[in-house]
Design a protein around this nucleic acid. Structure first.
Lengths: 191, 191
DNA sequence: AGAATCTGCGAGCTATCGCTCACATTGTCT
DNA sequence: AGACAATGTGAGCGATAGCTCGCAGATTCT
């Protein structure tokens, strides 16, 4: 089962979604197609399981960072969370990109939407706790903007500037931090 | 040809990318498969042409807005540009979403990357002209952040809050404007 | 009018897909 | 060792994909 998920990931990366046939996946995993269909009722559930596992790994990193950051001031906390998001995207950027770009949104994806809602709730919860330091009207909107912005920017950064050095990454984190912090606290200069 | 592009768009929206077969597209366009292959050498080029047309339409809206905004102060200009981006996404949000989520990145997509570089250049050029009002170290990074952020946020807004009223949209534009403006001018309060 | 050219047609080719099922192999219990 | 269950196998089924090509009707030229 683990071998099947790994094989699926590697085939998706190497061949793309439409060339990722169940036969090829089974072959790379070293089992027969028949066995594949004993563990997963169909191709969709196999892919869904892989997406879910990957998304949960990323969420885990964010949760860990969230705990480590509890005692910091808002700006430092944001910086660490954004750094953590970049680390999360470094788990398997190419695979994550294929999920984004090629894997069709399917029925069973409800499970993944649940994970995404967990992410949203996690961030919203954090902002709620700092409510008095944050100067935005609607917390839901603010959460939506923060999550979407940070997710996309860190994703694109990892994809496009794959070979970025530590310094370049730190500078990028600083930029996003400044933007988000400035957004949450518009009445205070960020510098 | 126009009929074929329209048919492709409608099939993509109604059936999704994998079910968008050349036979179905030709049938909906009211021509035969044979004719389809007189205009487009293969399916890829047909889809690429559609993506390119759509992307260019959106870029056109942005360019128009850019001209109308030339005389405004930075903050008002940003607000109008962001509003224009939402309008651009309203052209055909569902189709745009399918391009994002399902259409695989293919070879001929070079043409589309060119259009995206044009967008980047357009924004970079604008920021360059306002260089003295902008307090950001690296203009390329700033452009990258602005383009990516605004594109994603307006996209997600149009998709997720499809039925949003004028007021809700205005409030959202205000939030993004404040964030971007605050990012470009960190030393001044945005309120 | 007849020849020549062009345009559009769609049955059907080959390839590949997700998936099944009759069978082989391995493991467990008496 | 032999019986039975559980697990693994892979040739092959039906469906469907992208695409071809021999042909029919329309159009232009002589």
């Amino acid at each position: 089962m683990e071998a099947l998920l790994e094989a699926t990931a590697r085939i998706l990366v190497r061949e793309g979604y439409d060339r990722a046939s169940t036969n090829r996946i089974a072959a790379l995993a070293g089992v027969s197609v028949g066995s594949l269909y004993q563990y997963f009722p169909n191709k969709e559930s196999l892919v869904t399981a892989l997406v879910a596992r990957h998304t949960r790994e990323m969420l885990q990193l964010l949760q860990d960072a969230m705990e480590e950051v509890a005692t910091l001031d808002l700006e430092s906390a944001l910086r660490e969370l954004i750094r953590a998001m970049i680390e999360a995207h470094r788990i398997d950027p190419v695979l994550h990109r294929i999920f984004d770009e090629q894997v069709p949104r399917m029925g069973q994806l409800a499970e993944i939407e649940a994970i995404e809602r967990e992410t949203f709730a996690l961030v919203r919860n954090y902002l709620e706790a700092r409510r008095d330091e944050i100067a935005v009207a609607d917390l839901d909107t603010a959460t939506f903007i923060c999550v979407t912005t940070v997710e996309t920017l860190t994703h694109e950064f990892v994809i496009q500037r794959r070979e970025a050095g530590k310094g370049e990454q730190a500078a990028f984190v600083e930029e996003i931090t400044r933007m988000i912090f400035g957004y949450l606290r518009p009445d205070l200069p960020a510098v």
